[in-house]
Design a protein around this nucleic acid. Sequence first.
RNA 1: GGUCUCAUAGUUCAAUGGAUAGAAUAGGAGUUUCCUAAACUCUAGAUCCAAGUUCGAUUCUUGGUGAGACCA
Length: 590
Amino acid sequence: MAIAALLKETVTQSLSALYQQPFTDKDFQVNRTKPEFEGDYTIVLFSLIKKLKKSPEAAGDELGGYLIANYPQLFTDYNIIKGFLNLTVAKAYWIWVLENNHANGNYGHQPARGERVMVEYSSPNTNKPLHLGHLRNNFLGWSSAAILKASGYDIIKTCIANDRGIHICKSMLAWQLFANGATPQSTGIKGDHFVGDYYVLFGAELKKQVEVLMAAGASKEEAEKQAPVMQQAQQMLVDWEAGKPEVIDLWKKMNSWVYAGFDITYNRIGSDFDKTYYESDTYLLGKDLVELGLEKGVFFQKEDSSVWIDLTADGLDEKIVRRKDGTAVYMTQDIGLAVRKYEEYKCTKSIYVVGNEQDYHFKVLKLICQKLDLPAADGIFHLSYGMVELPTGRMKTREGTVVDADDMIDEMVNVARQKTEELGKVKDFSPEELNELLDNIGLGALKFFLLRVDPKKKMLFNPDESIDFHGFTAPFIQYTHARIKSILRKEAITAMDISQPLLPLEKELLVEMEQYPVIIEQAAAEYNPSLIANYVYAVAKTFNSFYTEHKVANAETEEKKQLRLRLCQMAANIIASAMALLGIKVPERM
RNA sequence: GGUCUCAUAGUUCAAUGGAUAGAAUAGGAGUUUCCUAAACUCUAGAUCCAAGUUCGAUUCUUGGUGAGACCA
């Protein structure tokens, strides 16, 4: 157990024993001691003093005295400043952590819990290529799944392909009208981009036709409805639903181009799925649930025979679940899919990685499922993340401000190439080794950039400033790893004298590293990879200070050398492990 | 119009109600006969406004201002 958890436990027990009344770990706070004070961990006493009716000094003195008397192997000293009890953790404990974990590449990982969690992420539309916002989604979903796995859960990663609907018909129609039989093969354009280009062409053609109609006196709304291409697209959707063979064939052909394109991108960024659902298979699900809801009296029917649920008592609105023409709405599909997922995988939790523009949708989805008393209901969790915005605001297809995912990745790798060549440290790499390194650096920088921010918050990307490779970035951490590995290649780890004292930076690094299991738990509980990013950066930064201050290979004594080699090895393992949780590889050299 | 988010150094991000609000970057000053300077050290710089709760508020409550999203 990590010291932070151990502290909560021992302090709770000690308080109960001292004062003969029950305490929980909610009754006090445990923090790292600020560097300007003596000690390692701090108990904040203010919240206890009401319950104990003692001054902070008196309570702290009693608790501190009790802890060092009863847990001498853990605590060796304490001091009280104002309401803060600063505890010094026994050196033997730190050495024990180091000796037992320096070579453990899975330090911090929890044993299996026997509980299964589904993570749905990525979920692209098959009418256009991925953009920067999708990358945030993919990285966040993949990383959350990895963190949950490290925390002991079984993980099922799923993706739903939004492969049908009017938007798909738009690109299909435009291809029929303008392509003259061109294909990704004939043009050499990546399939998802190829199809996306026709989606854009549809928009351009629609705009033309709308302008003509408006010049003839129609309102914008009317014009958009009446425009021939729009009517043709609508008809195509009707034909698709009727299963008209030539429409289905075209749909299959164009979707296969898109999937081929997506596969290349997914492969490059490391997104993978245990199961892909297709909206074309699932869009009719949930219809029987409407009947169930009516039977249970959860839904009600209006005069025009449309079906609704009244959520006004829950502070929300009335929400339609079936149109008057009997067709389903997104909500109904999603309820149906939630049921199917639960039947297939029996996950206790189902996490939907979807942007915060759908907060309302998921609030309603979960609530309806709960009212229908579906077994999947309580496990529904919307991992809501903020948009990636440009300095000019949101990315908009129409204004051509969308940052394309493939372009972005290529650019990052190019910057990595340029910087690596400037530094000239890996001239002996083979072309394959070099390309792998550049991919790891460029993609790593991009992933870290998108993951280091709290997922809930919107974030800003400025295309005019390339993403940094210095400071709070992946290349900084990767570089730290490479430097450590360089030492470890040269020096062997042998027996260590455990009685030696720890110098301040050695201690600081070790205290920092010891926390890793707590950080994984917190990141898993909050579905928040940015906690891992912030943590691994702190470890790398502390290591660099240590590295500058102290020699390892040429340490003052053999004992110091062995201690520091262990610190190096543990740091390398934690950096590699934490970065892996973010989907980022760390090189041996760079 | 209704609902929901957000507001912290010039800029991009941190801070379970706790000690002097942390980083990065940009700015200023330094460090390389010694394990990789994509590094390190020092320096300057911020909680939108106004009330309230509290021993203590960036954090909680209310009102205001500003930005965004969703629902029609």
